[in-house]
Design a protein around this nucleic acid. Sequence first.
DNA 1: TTGAAAGCGCTAACAG
DNA 2: CTGTTAGCGCTTTCAA
Lengths: 337, 337
Amino acid sequence: MTTIKHIAKQAGVSVTTVSRALNGYSDVNAKTRKKIEDVAKELNYSPNSLARSLVKNQSETIGLLVSGFTKESVKDGFTVEVMSGINNFVAETKYDLVLFNTDSSKQRKKTYTQLCKERRVDGVILQGIKTDDPYLEEVMESDIPCVFIDIPVSSDHVGYVSTDNKEGARVAVNHLIELGHRKIAMVNGHEQAFVSKERLEGYKLALQQNNIQFIAEYVKNGSFIEEEAYKQTLALLKEQPDITSIFCASDLMAIGSIEAAKELNYKIPEDLSIIGYDDIPLSSYISPALTTVSQNKYDLGYNAARMLTNMLKHHQPPERCILETELKIRQSTSIRL
Amino acid sequence: MTTIKHIAKQAGVSVTTVSRALNGYSDVNAKTRKKIEDVAKELNYSPNSLARSLVKNQSETIGLLVSGFTKESVKDGFTVEVMSGINNFVAETKYDLVLFNTDSSKQRKKTYTQLCKERRVDGVILQGIKTDDPYLEEVMESDIPCVFIDIPVSSDHVGYVSTDNKEGARVAVNHLIELGHRKIAMVNGHEQAFVSKERLEGYKLALQQNNIQFIAEYVKNGSFIEEEAYKQTLALLKEQPDITSIFCASDLMAIGSIEAAKELNYKIPEDLSIIGYDDIPLSSYISPALTTVSQNKYDLGYNAARMLTNMLKHHQPPERCILETELKIRQSTSIRL
DNA sequence: TTGAAAGCGCTAACAG
DNA sequence: CTGTTAGCGCTTTCAA
């Protein structure tokens, strides 16, 4: 493995000069530079980024912390699409991405902040974390620049990007109301998700704006899991047979709900309208095609990366960025008959 | 940021001792060790992996090179599922994953070997690369331990993991033949994919084993793109109206084919049987549910990671690993009427 | 059981 | 424009 030392020797100059030449400093004689570059090429030189990082005290890496990157979650294209947005932005920069896995057994031994500090990542993007995750506090207490995805928390070194969950939910439920529905149930995620909290608020708001009474029994938690939503919907439809529509806090859960409804011989959308959230690839392919609140997951990731690199490169303060959602009306919702 | 120097000072020992204590060497007095550990905790010490990597000349990182991690390819859960397998295995090891993006504009400036060498990754996993990609040769010429996914190339420092594509294709086509089909078309990927080559061989083999003449005009390339497969199938069905079934080299392309067939008022599977390859999440949700050759994508990734870490940790020679596929019979194929 | 010293490959004052 | 020197934080002989 050739180093600048080798180059220096071969080119008959000092390592300093080699360093400067190779880093494009202006105070190097054109001939010397040429000579050095030639030797570098000849010796097939690759700079050692570890050494550089050590002295410059920055690694030009961004840590990526995702839970949701498990075997099961692949079906739900959400996490992945966000990652793809992050990846694509980062690809245009000098940074590389280091993937930390949140579902690992490393977990017990090392916290994520430890992982980040050891690897000396310049910043970190965090996705899919629960509100009660201890890591949340860890990050806030550390001083690593950070962007959260879908967690509206910020400080002088952490920003976030999210979508307008409350408004998205409100629009979805309002859509059902406009279709004539009054008995609208909700299958939510879980208590430890910010988005669930916000979507529930949106649900309540839509009801309230239309003078519909909120009924606690109409709301179940499906933990963002298809199978769990299936079970909850089964229970829901049995306990509350008069409901005519369900707002699900994720498409995957909506799929579970549809299965449950079909199982109980509901026709969708004739007997029961179902609306999802996310607009994952699956949702337009299932039958009936799912009406859903579309989130631009790619942009979520892309913006997170953009914001973080802004903080890193230009020392800009963290942003708080909220993206719009869009209601995609397809075949799973219809006028109440 | 506290370093071992600080700890040494505070604990009244030398940095050497601190290093040894913290790394669990046996030749350090129990009391001294305790003291050092306490101070480390008190000072909230995190080791600097960059410094360690520099001196030990290994970074404990694995490079991950994927093309196919773009916005478009998210729908096709393939890449992602492989990555999830890699990620899950690696999570149990001391290694972290560094993501290199193949579709970047960095591309023009730096080759991937350069990227890998600069970052000093200990090894690399490579997926979704074309047979004519210059990086293939670069890797072979370098001496970085490497595992290819779906590229059956090996040397003393590179192994691969793939599935039995020829056999998978053979079984798929044979299934159609058993259903009574004789006029079987194929929508393949492209010339620069190993798997395409192998699947074509399997297709031919099945025909040959059943004394069916191979007809070149029955084979089109869809580049693994849904839209392209749609177009090719449209052309195919017009040019060769007597075909009764199509074997597609990917599920995404099968979906394109189905759309095309529907467009031309073919009923599936009554008028036309279509079989896919991959078994992506979508395939069981579309209608009709897709008969397909199922690959264990997760295992593909998991094994790649396992093989690579074996090479790195135990200096084992690279393996060549071929996984089995499984025909999943669903609703898109039926007896020729 | 401990410490001194050298060095991993690189950058960055500073001096010339 | 170029070189000398010091040092980033850590590990590793070697000697005590």
